[in-house]
Design a protein around this nucleic acid. Structure first.
Lengths: 149, 149
DNA sequence: AATAGTTGATAGTCACAATTATCAATTATC
DNA sequence: GATAATTGATAATTGTGACTATCAACTATT
């Protein structure tokens, strides 16, 4: 039993998650509809949230309520994550990928037919998991650009 | 007389700029106070706006009013511009640079003592001029990351 | 089979971000 | 030297984004 696995294990129902976060259930659904979060879903369409999901949502809430960044602002920021670099997609992939070519929605809100992301569950993708916490996006950019020196 | 120079020539007074943009004067001052724009200033502290400034402001307004990105959201997006890569600042510069280490304010809102940016007028800097129009930030990231392939 | 929790969706509330109005003091213009 | 425009600052306005309440239909649990 790895700790990281536990942190990513979807165990909390939506009511529990809402209680732990101190917010309402419709708010959680709204964040999802906006493409900010991708909770795990059972076959019955019921949502389950992991500890990592909760932390992610806390970061989102901090951005909204403390930093006063609007939801569309957060989406635009997420859309700047250089996913193409992280998943190493090809030139042809980039040509047809809505995520690569757009700048308003996070990559994980797109379908990715005929690309390297085609069969990847975005919830399990490094792009979604690693670079969506508060402040890690700029760190990612630093790492990527730093390689050239 | 180069066309680009004309476009960057500060010629419009604040009242003319406001009229051309269809907004009020206090709004223009507010954008400046928030660090979104850096109009030219005469010795008498009077502002002058260029054609390029107007275009920039139109992009900002589109982000705010159409894309529904809050001002703080735009600031956070600007803060992700990899200025360190554009101006080629040193490792030591990066250690002490507020712009490099923050993620809430655009680099041009900082002082840059003891760095390569120290004596550069931010209004004339490529980072401010080139990568602040609608949609060019992601293009910049693509160019930078693309170099490695 | 009955209770509790979930689903998506619509409608309502409310705080506050974005904008404007207005001010006295300063500066430009003629 | 008088008029018009600017300065920074504060107060007032307003549109709406973030959030919640509530709904009937469905699913899980006992």
């Amino acid at each position: 039993m790895d700790f990281k696995v536990d942190r990513e294990e979807p165990v909390f129902s939506i009511s529990t998650a809402a209680k732990l976060l101190g917010i309402s259930i419709p708010t959680l659904r709204m964040y999802e509809k906006e493409g900010l979060i991708l909770p795990f879903k059972k076959e019955s369409h019921q949502r389950l949230y992991s500890e990592a999901d909760l932390e992610r949502i806390r970061c989102i809430r901090e951005a909204i309520n403390q930093k006063k960044i609007s939801i569309n602002g957060i989406k635009a920021i997420y859309s700047l994550i250089p996913c193409w670099e992280v998943v190493h997609c090809s030139e042809e992939d980039r040509k047809i990928c809505g995520a690569f070519n757009g700048d308003e929605e996070p990559c994980w809100t797109y379908n990715h037919p005929n690309t390297v992301c085609e069969n990847i569950e975005c919830r399990d993708c490094i792009v979604y998991k690693n670079y969506s916490k508060c402040g890690t996006i700029k760190d990612l950019l630093k790492n990527i650009t730093g390689k050239e020196i």
